[in-house]
Write a protein that binds this DNA or RNA. Structure first.
Length: 177
DNA sequence: GCCAACGTTGGC
DNA sequence: GCCAACGTTGGC
């Protein structure tokens, strides 16, 4: 079986843990704890491999958006936060010798100069079958195709200069005040 | 803050 | 094994 790199999208509420938080973690690396959904866990446990690409998605907030990319640097291992009673994601059914929940480690790769809003993704015909865009989709860890990953990274490259000029315009507006 | 969609739980 | 009730997610 060939070991081809796979791609994923992982959601986080930026008010809880944003890509900027990740940027400040030691080694720009974090464990992805707190997943309490079996389907999402299974993707991490069974399919995520070292070197896989991750789209870091900011859910909730005013503008849900893909905020950047990360890479899987450690494959699935038990999520110890599940057996910590003080943890927000405590699960009394999980025990150290029967962990139930798993997590991976990811390392930040790039923060997009301009995040790609969900609204923009919806406008892209090449992305219409993305899991993220499916009505009612709530999976917090989901596969994306290599093509989808590539299209979004490419969008972020094009969005860069647009935002820069927007900034300039804003500055100019301030100046004239 | 609302609510649709979804996953989980528990009674039967 | 069905399904109603409930809790959660997440866009709007």
């Amino acid at each position: 079986m060939s070991q081809r790199r796979s791609f994923w999208l992982m959601k986080s509420d930026p008010g809880c843990f944003s890509i900027h938080h990740l940027a400040e973690c030691p080694g720009r690396t974090t464990c992805w704890s707190g997943v309490r959904n079996y389907q999402a866990r299974n993707f991490m446990r069974d399919q995520m491999k070292l070197g896989d690409g991750v789209l870091f998605y900011h859910s909730g907030g005013a503008t849900p958006a893909v905020a950047g990319t990360a890479v899987v640097v450690r494959q699935a291992y038990p999520d110890h936060t599940a057996w910590d009673p003080r943890d927000q994601h405590f699960d009394p059914k999980a025990l150290p010798d029967k962990p139930i929940w798993q997590m991976v480690d990811i390392r930040l790769e790039a923060i997009f100069v301009a995040p790609i809003p969900l609204e923009m993704l919806r406008k892209m015909p090449t992305l219409e079958s993305m899991e993220l865009l499916r009505k009612g989709s709530r999976l917090s860890v989901q596969p994306v195709t290599p093509r989808e990953f590539e299209v979004i990274v490419e969008l972020s490259r094009r969005a860069g200069p647009t935002r820069a000029s927007g900034k300039t315009a804003k500055k100019a507006a301030v100046k004239t005040r």
